[in-house]
Structures are given as C-alpha cells and as structure tokens.
C-alpha cells in the first residue's frame, strides 16, 4: 500500500511541477493546489498506514486499545489543509486582480516591478 501511495505522490508532484513551470498564472495556481494535496498525502503516508480503528477511547476505558490509526498526521494535515486553503484563496484572488488590472495572465508580460528593458547601470561614480 505504501508503494502505491508513494507512486501516487510521485505523480502528484510530477504534475504539479510541470504546471508550476508554466508561465500562465492560472496553471501555476493549479500546480500549487495539486502540490499541496501531494504533500498532505506524503505526511499521511509518512505517519504509517494502518487500516485499524479510529483513535477514539471507547466508553468505559482509560486508554486506547491497539491497534489504532495514528491521529497526529491527520491533525497535521488538517492544519496544513486549512492554512494552504487560506493562502491558495489569497493567491487566487491576487491572480484574478492581476488579470483584471494588469491584463496579464502570462508572467512574462508582468514587468511593472522589473522593467523589461532595464536601464543601464550607472557608469559614473
């Protein structure tokens, strides 16, 4: 199972890196989203896969009965999903605003902050 998931994570990463290498912002956004999912899957796999019962203490017991699923990776992933979602939303809105205002989805044409024909370096001292 780990091997299958590792292959899947590899595919996620491949697709996301391919998309991130694009110049179009919307593709980069999709790449970021897929990369985030791949990373979450990676954390999940790294926490060891168990198909056992959920880690909830049964009624009348003091502690967990083994075997049980590892709850920590799930907590980490939940946090990462929430944060990743927030940042992704921000980037999405930012990309949309940039598309409206700069009329550019191609990073090559976004040259306001770094002018395309940069002025020659000052030669005098």
């Amino acid at each position: 199972m780990e091997i299958a998931l590792a292959v899947l994570i590899g595919m996620f990463f491949t697709v996301s890196i391919y998309l991130l290498l694009s110049r179009a912002i919307i593709r980069m956004l999709l790449g970021i989203a897929i990369l985030g999912n791949g990373v979450n899957l990676l954390i999940f796999t790294a926490g060891r896969l168990t198909k056992e019962i959920p880690p909830i203490i049964p009624m009348g017991q003091d502690g967990l009965i083994e075997p049980f699923a590892n709850p920590l990776p799930q907590a980490l992933i939940l946090t990462a999903i929430v944060i990743g979602f927030a940042l992704f939303t921000f980037l999405l809105v930012l990309g949309y605003r940039a598309y409206q205002e700069l009329d550019a989805d191609d990073t090559d044409t976004m040259r306001l902050a770094e002018p395309e024909r940069a002025p020659r370096p000052p030669l005098s001292y």
Binding site: V39, E101, T107, M110, R111, L112
Partner: peptide, 20 residues
C-alpha cells in the same frame, strides 16, 4: 497600486512554494 500587484504575485507564489 499596479506595481504592487505585480510584486505581490511573485512574492506570494515563491514564498508559498518555500513553505510547501
């Protein structure tokens, strides 16, 4: 300002990538 949007896109993407 427009130039800020441009800067923010580059800043945002690369820093988000770094934290990922």
């Amino acid at each position: 300002r427009k130039i800020q949007l441009d800067g923010a896109i580059k800043y945002g993407f690369l820093n988000f990538l770094a934290t990922t």
